[in-house]
Design a protein around this nucleic acid. Sequence first.
DNA 1: GCTCTGCGCC
Length: 652
Amino acid sequence: MISSNTLQNNTYLYTKLAAFYANCGRLGEARVIFDRIVLKNVFLWNSMIRGYACNGQCMKSLVLYREMMSFGQKPDNFTYPFVLKACGDLGVVEIGRRVHCEVVVCGFETDVYVGNCLLAMYSKFGEMDMVKMVFDRMPDRDLTSWNTMISGYVRNGEPKEAFLVFQMMGRTGLVADCATLLGLLSACVYMSSLKLGKAIHAYVVRNDLARVNGFLINSLIELYCSCNSMVAARQCFKEVTWKDTVSWNSLVSGYSKNADALESLRLFCQMVLEGVNLDQVTLVSVLGACYKITALQFSMSVHSYIIKQGFRAHSMVGTALIDSYSKCGDLACSRRVFYEMAEKTLVSWSAMVSGYGLHGMGREALSIFHDMMGIGITPDEGVFTSVLTACSHAGLVNEGKEIFHSMEKKYNVQPRLAHFSCLIDLLGRAGYLDEAYEFIKAMEIKPTCDMWASLLSASRLHKNVELAELSAQRVFEMNPKGVGSYVCLSNLYASENRWDDVEKVRALVRRKGLQKPPGFSFTELDKVVHRFLVGDKSHEQKDAIYDKLNELSQRLKEVGHKPDTSSVFYDVEEEVKEKMLWDHSERLAIAFALINTGPGAVIRITKNLRICADCHTVSKLISKLMCREIVMRDIRRFHHFKDGLCSCGDYW
DNA sequence: GCTCTGCGCC
């Protein structure tokens, strides 16, 4: 800090200095100087308000604006852009409207800068009607006005409208600039439109715009990720010399979303090794990739990195850790992070509720949900989804129903698709099939394919052929390519020994050219993730693995295990069926883990499908026989096998 | 002296 004596009497220089600090984001220094200046001019006030608004301290920006007014200083046309920005970023609708009134009173409504900021503010509020009104009333519009309209429509989920605005803009003779293209690219991302996106990419290349605006390349990377074109995304990434944290982050999250979490992890390592500046988004993204493949050890490394690099205080990072740990099977770690978290957001609580739910601990999920309500946090849709899912996993029918019905009445949260789905799942799985069916029929919204699929799966579980056929019919109509439902119906027929019907479904599947996705399982050893397909013979330890499986099969027979072959949907000899169960991917993974880890080590497996009934029994027996805890995540939830029992209490 | 702009947790 510069000594005050030298500049004491020079308000002009002081003002310049304060503005400089504010511009650099050094608000602390700027404020000290600001406070010392007695004769504050409008430029100084504006600089401070701007500094706060542009550096994530919007509330201070608004407070200062009020101080300015009460100080008798009249705001000018430079003041309002930042005040409006602060209102928009904070989402303070009432204050925003009042500031709008003040703008009108001061006569700045016709200023094109102020007008553009009004557009931006109302679009952040989600009030596109107001945006349109302001836009229509603007005496002058510049390119930014149009760009703000375009990005506003995309922000509010109307990408098609954004393109219409773009067409109208073209008719006025204005030519797109980088900001226009960024808006349009976001629209393409929203619609997953590879075709439009590529056209914009071509335009960018023709005009060599990526060099002008670095954001463009990041948007292109994101576009390709959202269209499942990871090769193109990688190409964009490779071709630019100018890369920032966001470029890397986009790719890390892109691979994770496109089922290549391993590549996300690899990229993260590369970032660390190359010393790329990484931020909280990187960490949230990589943790998201970790749980996709249940990479618990990797999550732990990321956690220690978070602590060392001082990212602990970020609530979003903390929440991602809670989520990642519970989805990787380590609820104890989730809880520790949760309880140590200084600032728990609504989402942090939701993640913890989900975590308990995922592990079948419905009572704990409910209890923490009520704790959250107890301290006055207002629930949102998301936390209701979490708590209803938890009830469903644990079979807490009455509790779930009660919460569902209280959503709107008590908490003013309107139930949406996800909540209806949860309730159907809850009822169906608990065996209240008729009630679930009646519920679907009585809903004010149109049932989705997932809801019918959920009822189908419940009907299979409780062996209700009639309802299964009815739901399957709906699913086949709505999603003719989803092979899972055919398999489900066929499995039900097989368990009832209705082999003619099994064959009919199988013929249908063949005629449509559908393939059953192969089952596979992951397990992590020394931070390396190993993947096993059903019947896999490609692993380097395959001989040892199959020897181990034979040995286990033998020992299980000795203790009287009779294989449950109901999930084998081929009409073959019982003995063949039993053999077919023994190369299910989770057993290969268990055998591999048994061979490669020491006595007592917890075995963690993830599989891409639901666990079959016999694998469930076998895992329980192995846990007892080998004195090993086995934590298995299937496509829906966790099973903790220990001492011959499973945490799900065989309810799944 | 100002506005529009990318990646992310339930």
